[in-house]
Design a protein around this nucleic acid. Structure first.
Lengths: 208, 208
DNA sequence: AATAATTTAGAACAAATGTACTAAAATAAA
DNA sequence: TTTATTTTAGTACATTTGTTCTAAATTATT
């Protein structure tokens, strides 16, 4: 593995453990047993490291999204996709923990993230429409209901990790499972009766 | 107003505008046209300022909570109380924006906040029980349903401000209104039919 | 093998920041 | 009015951090 790759790897490790504020380029270099001059040769500063890690995450997310495009989506798919996304978020935990700060400090990430969100919202609208069409979700009970639902889902996605870190116990995997359950609880009132039944059977199998 | 009070006031202003990381004791002193030596005479460092402001917020919250203790709570009360709390959170916006960081950096706040949350959870459980008893909420549909609901409400409360800041437009007041709506949407599936009707009438009056 | 390019270590410097200290000024108490 | 206390301004110092630079070492190329 190249020095450049090792730098990112070590940065991710330290950022996740101690947060971006406490960790400096010198700490990272020290941990790797290289000089910080060397580190700055590859990445001029901490900001560059954060951006590089952010781009890693975004790339991995995009691969998954394009994978789903145009396909029919079931409840099982949704569940798998939720687990994939939240697991990835856990891998880049520090980004989620410091999200608002990073957004404020690094304009590139702020603008890029806002762009991504616009796109993500459209994708969700498409998925919702498809699920309504396939009788998995009920038609919109009032205008804007699914937009409001999406806000809740979106919030849960972005802030679950810092919340769980503070308030919940157990392993990361248990927290991921709880996250998936919570998202489904958000969707539950919008499930058709058939879906509710299906979902109920699914859950009673899983829980034992 | 004493210097000590003016310091807190100015700190709050600058923290809210630029975030706790960017603002230093020197900036605050400069803005107030006093020496930073003077500022450090009253509050030795930035951490002390953050703690003092945190305590201001907690005190104001506690006053409201004790106000409600032992009383019967209606939907209207809930709405009023939600608006009060979220408005207070908006006043101390910087605390909510940097929450996870502040929790990590300042042990006093971390431990104190965790204590508060235990208490807050119990209060909510009592309120839920009362609302079930008064036929406003349905009985728990499955074991842990209201605990899970409370997690969603809690998350929404703690992270609405950073979320709205990034993704929503409009004035703070509009965002506060949206917050209240979102919380009620979380509760809606647990309303009794009577409450749903009442809630519906309430909303159709408000919206015009 | 000789040369060029890349990578690395380490030093050096500037700026920012927290903290402590001193002496003057203002205020309160006697 | 005198004395004590509190408040204020300003300075000074250590530490941290980002950033740049140089020269040595390593690797790749010819």
């Amino acid at each position: 593995m190249s020095t450049k790759e090792r730098i990112l790897e070590t940065s991710l490790l330290l950022f996740n453990e101690f947060g971006t504020e406490s960790v400096t380029v010198r700490h990272i270099a020290e941990r790797m047993h290289i000089s910080h001059g060397n580190l700055c040769y590859h990445y001029p500063n901490k900001e560059a490291l954060i951006i590089a890690l952010y781009e890693q995450l975004v790339n991995q997310l995009n691969q998954k999204v394009t994978h789903y495009i145009g396909k029919e989506i079931s409840i099982i798919d949704m569940q798998a996709s939720l687990i994939f996304v939240i697991s990835l978020f856990y891998k880049y935990k520090f980004l989620m923990q410091n999200f608002t700060n990073i957004m404020r400090i690094i304009p590139y990430i702020r603008e890029h993230y806002i762009q991504i969100c616009i796109q993500r919202k459209k994708e969700f609208q498409m998925i919702h429409n498809q699920l309504i069409h396939n009788n998995i979700l009920i038609p919109e009970p009032y205008k804007g209901a699914y937009d409001a639902l999406y806000i809740r889902v979106h919030m849960m996605g972005d802030f679950w990790i810092p919340f769980a870190d503070i308030h919940l116990q157990g392993s990361d995997n248990e927290k991921i499972q709880q996250f998936v359950n919570q998202i489904f609880e958000l969707y539950f009132p919008y499930f058709t009766n058939d879906t509710k039944l299906l979902f109920h059977n699914l859950n009673s199998n899983n829980s034992i």
